[in-house]
Design a protein around this nucleic acid. Sequence first.
DNA 1: TCTTGTGTTTGAACATGTTCAAGGAACAGT
DNA 2: ACTGTTCCTTGAACATGTTCAAACACAAGA
Lengths: 226, 226
Amino acid sequence: MTTAMKPHVTPRAEETRKRIYEAALELFRENGFEQTTMRDIARKADVALGGAYYYFSSKEAIVLAFYHEMQQSNHDQILELMDKSKKLKDRLRTIIEKRLELLMPNRRFCDALFRHAPDSTDPLSPFSEETHSIRERAIQHMQIAVEGSDTRMPTDLKRHLPYLLWLYQMAIILFWLYDRSSGQQRTQKLIDKSLGLVVSLIRISGLPLMRPLRKTVLELVETVTP
Amino acid sequence: MTTAMKPHVTPRAEETRKRIYEAALELFRENGFEQTTMRDIARKADVALGGAYYYFSSKEAIVLAFYHEMQQSNHDQILELMDKSKKLKDRLRTIIEKRLELLMPNRRFCDALFRHAPDSTDPLSPFSEETHSIRERAIQHMQIAVEGSDTRMPTDLKRHLPYLLWLYQMAIILFWLYDRSSGQQRTQKLIDKSLGLVVSLIRISGLPLMRPLRKTVLELVETVTP
DNA sequence: TCTTGTGTTTGAACATGTTCAAGGAACAGT
DNA sequence: ACTGTTCCTTGAACATGTTCAAACACAAGA
């Protein structure tokens, strides 16, 4: 007897799952998250309504799967691109633009990711348990960007920087979601201008004059970080 | 014939509206927004299901009404309290703590306010059309806090400060919603520490040395502000 | 081939936000 | 008192996310 309870997923099932997943994403992209019904998805994927729920515990779970997949496909790409430049600004820009590039075709529905309650039980909250691994990896990217850069900075700041930069990235994504300007030019401007500012601040923070202020900020960060 | 179409609201109707409103808030407070059904509300208010929709176009509209009412009741109180001190820090603390105090009993459901799509059509988004007047008034409070304070600051910053402080306040509220610590002590710490920092930054920004940085930040703010 | 168990699929049923056509109540003008 | 208008109330009906018991498919063992 096998003590392990392997889920025994048949190839056929995997195919069905994929059919549902892709039908869903296509519909989400076309009509947005809200406008797409589970019945639409099931019909397009050629399964009964209940079928969709066999593979995805909820409508949101499909978005979560996309979120995971995106982070996965992003990872190797990021590692590669990090070799292009040692400048922190370039590295941050790469990470942020790569992320937006992946989100771009899905702009219609990835707002669903931000639409959720400040509730640890809500699977789609960017701070929830379910998105933990995604979040950790995104922070890890920032860590890599920082570690490998030639920008000098105080060690006490360095420790918190990956998390802070992740927050910075999240803020940009949030702005991008709200951005109604054509081609999201305003987001582009925001990135251009804020990147310089962020890097400047990191540089300046090393000045002896800035030490007290830096300490205060970091103390604040520590009370706020879980 | 009366050319004007006055809405002709009977007193009885106003009473029914209030009954629904209060039943809803009570249930929201007790069970949260999601857990409360419109049928629950209607039953508690002793009207038919459709009745609730005669007065409130949606479940969320009830929360919006609360939001409006809160801002209203807040206004005079704030104006009064602004006379207590001329120090910017005191004034900001007053506004923020008063706001949290009003939200506190409704913590279970005011997360609904933040749970909404970055979509100008979404009535509950803090940036939407429907919440415009609320937002404007909140920003106005910050303006009053700034104008009447004895803290000196550059005029170019002063112009944007109310909006920036409003964002600051929103960030604190968001943190508070996420804050699972008992009695939301972490939020209290955040306020204590960040207030000092904010005021310090405003002061420092006036130093000649800071001029370029300040200009950069304000330029950024202007591209980001609609 | 028949049986059995496991993995997959189905569609009816349910809960809940929302809409709406119909009915009732109050009141003004006749 | 009758009539019409306007405001208010009702509950059935609908759309859609979700659940679930039953049916089905298929492979392994008899």
